[in-house]
Write a protein that binds this DNA or RNA. Sequence first.
RNA 1: GCCCUGGUGGUGUAGGGGCUAUCAUGUGGGCCUGUCGAGCCCACGACUCGGGUUCAAAUCCCGGCCAGGGCGCCA
Length: 439
Amino acid sequence: MTDSLGNWRRTHYSKRIDPEMSGEEIIVMGWIHEIRDLGGIIFVLLRDRDGTIQITAPSKKISKELLEEIRKLRKESVVAVKGIIQESGKAPGGYEIIPNEIKMLNESKLPLPLDTTDKVRAEIDTRLDSRYIDLRRPTSSAIFKIKSRMLHSVRNFLEKGEFIEINTPKLVASATEGGTELFPITYFEREAFLGQSPQLYKQMMMATGFDKVFEIAPIFRAEEHDTLRHLNEAISIDLEASFCDQEDVMHILEAVVHTAIGDVIEHCSDELEILGVDLEIPKIPFERIDYGDVVDIVNSKGVNMKHGEDLSRAAEKAIGETMDGYYFITGWPTDIKPFYVMPNLETPKKSCAFDLMYKDLEISSGAQRVHKHDLLVERIKKQGLNPVSFERYLAAFEYGMPPHAGWGLGAERFTMCMTGVNNIRETVLFPRDRRRLTP
RNA sequence: GCCCUGGUGGUGUAGGGGCUAUCAUGUGGGCCUGUCGAGCCCACGACUCGGGUUCAAAUCCCGGCCAGGGCGCCA
C-alpha cells in the first residue's frame, strides 16, 4: 500500500542537517538504502541526492504500529519520513532521526538488478542496462555532478568573455564535410544526416559579425570504433572567434580548462573524495610541443612513426609517458588536417592547427582557419572534395569574412580527465556506442 | 572490421566430460535494543543460444549473439 504525498514537502536534504538542529521536527524524502533490523531497534538508512541519513527506530520510543511499518520497509522503496533530529555520538555523522510518521510513496520491485550499496560490484554493461538504479550509487552520480559543474563553469567563463552562445542544426543535408562516417536519416522524401560537427556553421557565424561564439551540443559519428575513449554520440564544446589566430584561442582554451578544474575543485570536493581523485589545478600556460619533436620522441621510445603521419595509439602512449598533464601539440602537417585549417604562411606544409592532450588522450583540437575564399576552394580540391557541395558554406567567405580561429573540446573526454575514470561510457548518462542504442 | 579472452542464481564469482554445481551478496522467514560491509539459523534461486562429438556435455569441437581487453577506423 502506498501513501500520497499530500501536503508533505521535504524540509531538508540529508547533507543539510547538523547536530545543532537537535530537537527540530523535519521531513526527509528519498530511497531506502539499507535496513538493519536488530529486533528491539531498527536502523534505516535513507538516501537522497546528497547522501544518507540514519532513521533510528527504538521500540521503546515509538509506537508498535510505526515499528511494524518500519519493519516492512524494503530496499529502494521511496519514502517520506517526519521525525525529530537527535544528536547522537553513536549515529553516523553524529545525528539521527527518530521517526514520528512515515509515508510509503512507492514500493520497489525486488530483487534489484544491481546492488546499490557497492557490496557486490556490477559490470558496466549490467549497470548501463539499469542506469537509473546505477546512478543511485554515489560513485556513479559523482561523475555527473562534476560534469555538470564543468559545463556550468565553461558557460560562465565564456559568457564573461562576451561569447555568444549559439545553436546550430544537427540535421544536415550532405556528407561532404569529409572523412568521418555520418549517420543517414530520412528527412521527409530526402536523405539527410546527423551532424558530425558544428564546424562549418560556427565559421559562417564569423561572417555575421557575432565575433565570438560557442556551442555546447551533441555531435554524431558513425565510426565502428569500439574503445574506452570513443562514443557515437558525444557532447562537443565548440568555440570560434574572429580577429584571432591559433595562439589567441589556445590561450582561451587553457584558461577554460584551468577555470573549470578550479571550479570543480571548489564546488565538488565531496564528489572528488567519493571518486578518490586528488585533482590539482594545472599550471598555465600549458607546455607546447612541436609535431616534429613529437615524431622524434615517439621514435626514441621505440615506436615507429613517420613524419606526416597522425599519431597511432602506440604513439599517443609514448608521448603521454614523456609529457605530464595538459600540453599542446602544434605545427601539425597541413596534409593530415582538414581543409579549413590555415597552412602556415612561411612553411605551408605545416599548419596552424593544434591538439590539446592530457597525458595520452586527445581532448581538443583547433586551428586558425582559412578565411580567404580562393585558398579554401583550393584546399577543398586538394583534399579530394568537391567545392560545389560546399557552395552555401563557401559563399559566406565572399562577402567579408574576418580572419578567425577556434576549437572543439570533447566534454566527455575532459570529464574523464577530471574524474579519473578510464571508460568514457562512465561519463555519459545513456551512452551510444557500436552496440548500445538502449536505454 | 581484426586479434586475444570470456559468457554459471537478481548481482559478482569458483569449478571444468558422470557427484546434491562452489562461495559471497541478495531475496523470503526466524532470533537479537546501538547497527554502521551488523551477527547467527533456515530456505529460495544459475551453467548464453543453435548444431556436432560421446553411453554421458555446463565442461570438448563448430557457428551465432553478447561482453571484457588490445588495435584499427575516428576531415
